[in-house]
Simulated scan of single mutants.
Amino acid sequence: MASSSASQGNGNALRLVALLLCVMFIVDQAAAAVVPVGGNTGWMLGNKFSKLSIKSKDQLLFKYPANVHDVVQVSGADYKSCNANGQTRRSGYDQISLGPGTYYFICGVSDHCKQGMKVTVTVS
């Protein structure tokens, strides 16, 4: 009878550990956020963009009229010179996940980048 009681105790402990892992996963996922670049008005000329800090579980959201703007991920040098030499997105609703590091995004349309339509994103 003692071994049955011991195995039942081990089973309860395993269930408790599994439950705690599930709760930790749910809390971790709930802590992730979707961060709209440009706030409620989105990725548009006239918004003030410069630096944005997010966590690695967060996602960036670029919302914009696809027939007017785009989003180009560029190097630091291309960011400074507004050279749209990188991966271009044109959907108008681009949700992007990034790992830790620093990333640079510009609008590659016309002179939009030179008008300030660019952002540096630091992911921790």
Rank of each mutant, 00 (worst) to 15 (best):
M1C: 02
M1Q: 02
A2C: 04
A2D: 03
S7H: 03
Q8T: 06
Q8E: 09
G9F: 04
N10Y: 02
G11T: 07
G11K: 05
G11E: 07
N12S: 11
A13N: 07
A13W: 10
L14V: 10
R15F: 06
A18Q: 13
A18D: 11
L20F: 14
L20E: 15
L20M: 15
L20D: 15
L21S: 11
C22R: 09
M24R: 13
M24G: 15
F25G: 08
I26P: 03
I26F: 13
I26M: 15
V27M: 13
V27N: 14
D28M: 12
Q29R: 13
Q29M: 12
A30T: 15
A30S: 13
A32M: 06
A32D: 05
A32V: 13
A33I: 05
V34T: 15
V35Q: 01
V35C: 12
V35N: 11
V35M: 05
P36S: 14
G38I: 11
G39A: 14
N40G: 14
T41M: 12
G42D: 07
W43C: 10
G46C: 07
G46V: 08
K48P: 06
K48S: 14
K51I: 04
K51W: 03
L52E: 04
S53E: 04
S53N: 07
I54A: 01
K57F: 03
Q59T: 02
L61K: 07
L61H: 11
F62H: 10
K63V: 07
Y64T: 08
Y64D: 02
Y64Q: 04
P65F: 06
P65A: 14
A66V: 09
N67T: 13
N67M: 12
V68E: 13
H69F: 09
H69D: 06
H69R: 13
D70G: 09
V71M: 07
V72G: 00
Q73W: 03
V74Q: 06
S75C: 10
G76S: 06
G76D: 05
G76T: 03
K80A: 08
K80F: 03
S81C: 02
C82E: 05
C82H: 04
C82W: 04
N83C: 08
N83I: 08
N85R: 15
T88C: 12
T88A: 12
T88V: 15
R89A: 13
R90C: 11
R90D: 12
S91E: 14
G92D: 06
G92Q: 05
Y93F: 15
Y93H: 15
Y93A: 10
Y93G: 09
D94V: 06
D94F: 12
Q95W: 04
I96S: 02
I96Q: 00
I96C: 02
L98P: 01
L98W: 01
L98F: 10
G99C: 03
P100A: 01
P100K: 01
T102W: 00
T102L: 00
T102E: 03
Y103L: 05
Y103G: 01
Y104T: 00
Y104V: 00
C107R: 00
C107S: 00
G108P: 00
V109A: 11
V109Q: 13
D111R: 06
D111G: 02
H112S: 09
H112K: 04
C113Q: 03
K114E: 11
Q115G: 09
G116L: 14
M117R: 05
V119Q: 09
T120N: 00
V121I: 05
V121S: 01
V121D: 01
T122Q: 05
T122A: 01
V123Y: 01
V123Q: 02
V123A: 02
S124W: 05
S124L: 08
